[in-house]
Nucleic acid binder design. Structure first.
Length: 112
DNA sequence: AAACTGACTAATA
DNA sequence: CTATTAGCCAGTT
């Protein structure tokens, strides 16, 4: 498989997400240096190698819900993982991005 | 090589 | 809140 640099950037961005926090695809895309390529982020995560141990579960869509469509099992697993990290889900299966959304500016070091 | 598909987002109504 | 439209790009067929 081709070693796309974009993929590596996406993985790094996801790895930057602090525990107990969630990020949207658009955020990851922008953080990875690919603004507007949210779709590609999802594709990259789908192809994420297990060796990298990327916390893809912390990546949600803009609505704050599990993005997975054709994989309800994995989605359930993801929900459990997030719950274990302290993320509370609403009854409709969405997360309050207003509260759990990863504020990059606040968490990141002032340097760089 | 053209068309189709997909872990998406944002704007508008 | 939902529905619709348009944009985006890599992987499959």
């Amino acid at each position: 498989m081709a070693g796309s640099e974009s993929y590596a950037r996406i993985y790094e961005a996801v790895l930057r997400i602090p525990r107990g926090r969630v990020a949207t695809y658009g955020q990851i895309a922008a953080l990875a240096g690919l603004p507007g390529h949210a779709r590609q982020v999802g594709y990259a995560l789908h192809r994420t190698p297990d060796e990298l141990a990327v916390p893809w579960q912390r990546v949600l869509n803009a609505k704050g819900e599990i993005a997975l469509r054709a994989d309800p099992i994995a989605a359930k697993h993801q929900r459990e993982l997030l719950r274990g990290e302290g993320v509370r889900f609403r009854r409709n299966g969405t997360v309050e991005l207003r509260k759990y959304g990863w504020n990059v500016v606040a968490e990141e070091e002032p340097d760089e």
